[in-house]
C-alpha cells in the first residue's frame, strides 16, 4: 500500500504547511510576507516586548482562559459524574442540550448571548466573554471527563465505602485520583479553546480585547504582520509545551492504572 503512504505524507505536508511558515516568516528580515526570504532577524520578537496593548490582551486572555477552563471543568465533573452514575428523568434530552454548543455554529452562540446581554442591560466585560467560553468549553470537558468516569469500575467506590470510608472519602481518595488525568486534560483543552476562540470574544468583549481579537485588529496593518508572525510562533511553542504536559499527565494516568494506551486526546 505504497500510494496510501505517499498520500498520507502529502496530506501531512498540507496540514503543516501554514504552521511551518509561521516561524519561517517570523525570522525573515522583511516587512512583506513573501518569498524569497531576505535574511535572518530577531527584531520582530524584540518588537513584541514593546507593545503594551498586546500585553494587556495577553493578560486578559490568560485570565479569561483560566477562569473559563476552571468553570467548565467543574461543570464537566458534575455533569460527567451525574450522567455516568445516576439515573434521572429526562437524562438524555438534558445531556443532549448541554452538548448542543458542540455542534452549534459559534456565531449563533455569540449573537444570541449578545442579544440577551443587550436586553438585560449588562455591559460587555471579560466576564461576558467568560460566560460564552464556559458555554462552549463545557461540552468538551464533559466529553473528556465522561470517558474518564465511564472507565471506572462502579464497585471501586462501593469497595472504599465498604472498607469504612464515607461517601466523600471514597470520592476524594479513590475517584478523584483516578480521574485526575482527565481533569488535567479537560482543563488544558478548555483553556486552549478559550485562548484561541475569536468570534464569541469578538462579539462579547468590552473595552479589553482578548489575544485573538487583538491579532484580528492587527491583521489589517501590513507593517504589523511580521510581529504578528512572531507572536504566532511564540503561541505555537506555548501550545506545544501545554500539549506535552497534557500528554505526560495522560500517560502517567494510564501507567498508574495499568490501562492500555488507546491513543491521544479526543
Amino acid at each position: 500500500m505504497n500510494w496510501l503512504r505517499v498520500y498520507a505524507i502529502v496530506y501531512l505536508v498540507f496540514l503543516y504547511l501554514p504552521v511551518l511558515l509561521l516561524p519561517v516568516f517570523s525570522f525573515n528580515d522583511a516587512t512583506v510576507i513573501a518569498f524569497p526570504l531576505q535574511g535572518f532577524t530577531t527584531q520582530w520578537f524584540k518588537e513584541l516586548a514593546g507593545i503594551s496593548a498586546l500585553h494587556g490582551a495577553l493578560k486578559n486572555s490568560l485570565f479569561i482562559g483560566i477562569v473559563s477552563a476552571t468553570l467548565s471543568t467543574i461543570l464537566g465533573i458534575c455533569a460527567a459524574r451525574a450522567s455516568t452514575r445516576y439515573r434521572f428523568p429526562f437524562k438524555a434530552p438534558i445531556m443532549g442540550a448541554i452538548m448542543l454548543p458542540l455542534v452549534l455554529p459559534e456565531i449563533i452562540v455569540a449573537v444570541s448571548l449578545l442579544v440577551v446581554l443587550m436586553q438585560l442591560g449588562f455591559s460587555l466585560t471579560s466576564w461576558t466573554v467568560i460566560m460564552g467560553h464556559t458555554l462552549i468549553c463545557t461540552p468538551f470537558a464533559i466529553a473528556i471527563l465522561s470517558s474518564s468516569f465511564q472507565g471506572l469500575d462502579q464497585s471501586l467506590e462501593e469497595a472504599a465505602v465498604d472498607l469504612g470510608e464515607t461517601r466523600w472519602g471514597a470520592f476524594s481518595k479513590i475517584i478523584l485520583p483516578l480521574v485526575t488525568p482527565g481533569i488535567v486534560a479537560s482543563f488544558l483543552i478548555a483553556f486552549t479553546i478559550s485562548m484561541d476562540e475569536f468570534i464569541i470574544a469578538f462579539f462579547l468583549t468590552g473595552a479589553d480585547p482578548t489575544l485573538p481579537v487583538y491579532i484580528w485588529s492587527q491583521l489589517r496593518f501590513p507593517k504589523r504582520l511580521p510581529s504578528v508572525m512572531a507572536l504566532g510562533t511564540l503561541l505555537i511553542v506555548a501550545s506545544l509545551v501545554l500539549l506535552s504536559v497534557a500528554e505526560y499527565f495522560r500517560r502517567r494516568g494510564i501507567r498508574r492504572t495499568g490501562a492500555k494506551d488507546s491513543g491521544g486526546f479526543l
Partner: peptide
C-alpha cells in the same frame, strides 16, 4: 455501609488501581 461490621469481595474485585497491593490491603 461504611459503619457495618461486614466486608465485601466484589465480583470485579474492585482493587484500587492507583495503589500498591499493600496500600489496598491497608485501605480500611
Amino acid at each position: 455501609a461504611n459503619k457495618r461490621p461486614t466486608n465485601m469481595v466484589f465480583q470485579s474485585y474492585a482493587i484500587f488501581p492507583h495503589l500498591t497491593v499493600g496500600q489496598n490491603v491497608a485501605f480500611g
